[in-house]
Nucleic acid binder design. Structure first.
Length: 565
RNA sequence: GCGCCCGUAGCUCAGCUGGAUAGAGCAACGGUUUCCUAAACCGUAGGUCAGACGUUCAAAUCGUCUCGGGCGCACCA
């Protein structure tokens, strides 16, 4: 907590000849709380003073006098360790939480600033599968993290609704789609057509040319092509929305690639005018050789545009529309080169906001035996996973808490929460191997564990039945388990800031695991509700504050917070 | 071939802007419930932090190289 560090720094700066910032930077937290709450390592001084750090620590600690929020100062080996006053600690943390409630953790850091977040962005005409989870969940969490810090967030679903693949789909539809069942087409049907196209195209390469021809028509505004395309899109969006609703994910806008079709011409012209383009192998490119990258393709030899062209147009449009302070693309790391290429083009175009665009990449999700592929039908559908998760939770509820009210709602909240947490809890840049048993494990460091802890706390508060007050004797909150928990709670804000800085929701997951571990250890060691009225009042405040922090954290992750389970 | 990412306990991971004995969970074994939800808690066992060299008072953490795995490298997105 900044408050204590500030005090320690002001004590230290009187005695040692180091800049204030440097002292602050050096302060760390000891590995064991029994060693102190904060520590100042004396290695740096040792170098300057040419004395052993242990001696410096001893001497320094002798000249320092603990005042006000600092209770004790003690040298341990090469460290000067500081013990803070525990009453001040709990009072500060618990009162703040109690006052700020759902707003605890909110900072005004991002006030007046807008962040655009491009996430999920699936391709039309294919099912949402488990490998689509990562972008959707990480993006949603980052959106919530920045909102928590006071930013205005614009979540955009940059649908993959344009490109040669729609030419393929149109060809497949016209050849093998049954016109009569036109209206009841599903994503499954579209997906089958897509798969069939690729099978047939292997035998008959002419199909690819036909597909390109149809995409060209589409890009030129051909009525028939456009009508079919719109139909495919409608079918897909309807299904996507169902899944997003299940996951509780909301977008401010569904603006697919197609939206930029009308702007792309002007974008290409601008790039040309800057003298950045050249024709190579009949395609229009931006040569990135000087930057050790392959060229960025703007137009294919048949004159149609590509992914990168539309991304550049989209970036220009978004800057104009939202005047973002930052734009975050939550897209898999396999597209890193693509982002480096088109960011470079933006930079070459002279846009000074290029460095405000970041590619937040994440590792690939695959099966034990290889990559997931829609084309080969080697996928687990997202809907199936969610349904299975809910189903398994339903069985566990039947077993553990059969008298629970709202079983259906709780099963859904916990099942989906488990899937979300499982995906978010590891650092995003690691590849993940999809394993049913792992995602659907509900014990230990999992979503249900966090939710269970939250539900327990709600239960205590229900039993208590009286209003929670901060008018308590803070000196009663003195046991080790209580102190550790309180210290955890006070770290919430700094965790949010760090997770924003690194675009890393997993930090919040790990933090919540920590808080819940501390809480459960406290819970097992001490009773909250007892005959001792003052003690009960004090512990209830701690319980309520913990409940609040867990709740705020889960909401950021996009996980529901049932108060019974 | 070139570039990027990853390699910590049997498994999944945390720790990585260098610091005090490398931490969790799962799995295994043992224990805790007359009392606030045992989806919990406690204990035992399990590690040459892939390997080598280097920088440093100090390296899982920084650098170089090697090995292993993943991804990407012009008309897909």
């Amino acid at each position: 907590m900044d408050y204590f560090i500030k005090n320690i720094v002001s004590l230290l700066k009187e005695k040692i000849d180091l800049p204030e910032d440097e002292i602050k930077r050096l302060i760390e937290i000891p590995p064991d709380f029994k060693m102190g709450d904060y520590a100042f390592p004396c290695y740096t001084l040792s170098k300057i003073l040419k004395k052993s750090p242990n001696i410096i620590a001893t001497e320094l600690s002798n000249t320092l006098h603990a005042v006000r929020p600092i209770a004790e100062i003690k040298a341990i080996g090469p460290y000067v360790n500081f013990f803070v006053d525990k009453v001040t600690l709990s009072e500060l943390a618990l009162k703040t939480i109690s006052e700020e409630r759902d707003g605890y953790g909110n900072k005004t850091l991002g006030k007046g600033k807008t962040v655009v977040i491009d996430f999920s962005s699936p391709n039309i005409a294919k099912h949402l599968a488990v490998h689509h989870l990562r972008s959707a969940l990480i993006g949603n969490a980052i959106c919530n993290i920045y909102k928590t810090l006071g930013y205005t967030c614009v979540g955009i679903n940059h649908l993959g609704d344009w490109g040669t693949q729609f030419g393929q789909l149109i060809v497949a539809y016209k050849k093998w789609g049954n016109e009569n069942t036109h209206k009841s087409y599903t994503v499954t049907d579209l997906n089958n057509l897509y798969v069939r196209f690729h099978q047939e195209a292997e035998k008959n390469p002419g199909l690819e040319d036909e597909a390109r021809e149809w995409f060209k028509k589409l890009e030129a505004g051909d009525a028939e092509a456009k009508e079919l395309w719109q139909h495919f899109k409608d079918i897909s969006l309807k299904e996507f929305q169902k899944i997003y609703d299940m996951l509780g994910i909301h977008f401010n806008a569904f603006i697919g690639e197609s939206f930029y079709n009308t702007m792309v011409e002007a974008t290409v012209t601008r790039i040309k005018e800057k003298g950045l383009t050249k024709v190579s192998e009949q395609a229009l490119i931006v040569d990135l050789e000087p930057y050790n990258m392959p060229p960025c393709l703007l137009r294919k030899k048949d004159d149609t545009t590509l992914y990168a062209t539309r991304d550049i147009a989209a970036a220009e449009y978004r800057k104009k529309t939202y005047d973002f302070d930052r734009m975050i693309y939550v897209v898999g790391s396999e597209q890193k080169l693509h982002f480096n290429q088109f960011f470079k083009v933006l930079e070459l175009m002279g846009y000074n906001w290029t460095n405000r665009c970041v590619h937040v990449d994440f590792g690939l999700m695959k099966f034990k035996d290889g990559k997931m592929s829609t084309r080969k039908g080697k996928v687990v559908l997202l809907e199936d996973l969610l349904i299975e998760a809910v189903e398994r939770i339903r069985k566990i509820i039947e077993e553990k808490n059969p008298s629970l009210e709202n079983k259906e709602i709780v099963a859904r909240d916990v099942g989906i929460g488990a899937v979300i947490f499982a995906d978010l809890c590891t650092k995003r840049n690691k590849d993940v191997v999809f394993d049913w048993d792992e995602v659907l494990n509900f014990e230990g460091e999992t979503g249900p564990y966090i939710q269970y802890t939250h539900a327990r706390l709600c239960s205590i508060l229900r039993k208590y039945g009286k209003p929670v007050t901060t008018d308590i004797k803070f000196e009663l909150l003195k046991e080790d388990e209580v102190i550790i928990l309180t210290k955890n709670l006070g770290q919430f804000s700094s965790i949010i800031i760090k997770s924003a800085e690194f675009y890393e929701p997993s930090l919040i997951c790990n933090y919540l695991i920590d808080v819940c571990g501390s809480l459960n250890r406290f819970y097992n060691a001490h009773r909250v509700l007892s005959d001792d009225e003052e003690l009960t009042k004090a512990r209830i405040l701690l319980v309520d504050a913990t409940r609040q922090v867990i709740r705020n954290g889960l909401i950021i992750l996009g996980i529901s917070t049932p108060d019974q389970m």
